[in-house]
Simulated assay, not measured.
Amino acid sequence: MMELLFAMALAVQRPERTLQLAEVKQADPMVLAPKMLPPETSEQITGGWVRRYWAPGQMYQALFWEKSLPERDGICARRVHLVSAGNPTAPGNPDNPETVLTVSDLGSGVQYGPSYPEPATEARCAELTGYIGASQGQVDNQLAALDRLTETMRLAAGTADLPFALECDPQESATACNDPRRALAELPLDKLLRVQPSRPLPPRNASTPPGPRLFVQTDAPKNWNAAEVEFDTSGPGARSWIVTLTGDERVETVRLRSAMIIRH
Rank of each mutant, 00 (worst) to 15 (best):
M1W: 03
E3K: 09
L4F: 06
L5K: 12
A9G: 07
L10S: 14
V12P: 07
Q13Y: 04
E16I: 13
T18S: 15
L21D: 07
K25L: 12
K25E: 12
D28P: 02
A33V: 11
K35F: 07
E40Y: 04
Q44S: 12
T46G: 08
G57Y: 07
Q61A: 13
E66G: 14
P70R: 04
E71Q: 08
R72I: 04
D73P: 00
G74S: 07
G74D: 01
R79Q: 13
V80M: 10
A90E: 10
A90P: 05
G92K: 04
D95V: 03
L101A: 04
D105H: 02
G107C: 02
S108W: 08
V110A: 01
Q111W: 01
S115E: 02
P119H: 07
T121Y: 08
E122L: 12
A123Y: 01
R124T: 15
E127S: 14
Q136V: 10
D140I: 11
D140H: 05
Q142D: 05
L143Q: 02
L143F: 06
L146R: 00
D147G: 14
D147H: 13
L149R: 08
L149S: 01
E151Q: 14
T152C: 15
M153K: 02
A156G: 01
A160Q: 14
L162E: 09
P163S: 09
F164T: 02
L166P: 09
T175H: 05
A176S: 11
C177D: 07
N178R: 13
R181W: 09
A185G: 10
A185R: 04
D190W: 05
P197G: 07
S198C: 00
S198G: 15
S198V: 00
P200V: 00
T208R: 05
P209H: 14
L214W: 12
F215L: 13
Q217S: 13
D219H: 10
A220D: 15
A220Q: 15
K222M: 12
W224N: 13
V229M: 04
E230T: 15
F231Y: 04
D232A: 15
T233E: 15
S234G: 01
G235R: 11
G235T: 10
A238G: 08
W241C: 03
I242M: 12
L245A: 10
T246N: 13
G247T: 11
G247H: 11
D248W: 00
E249Q: 14
E249G: 01
E252S: 13
V254F: 09
R255W: 00
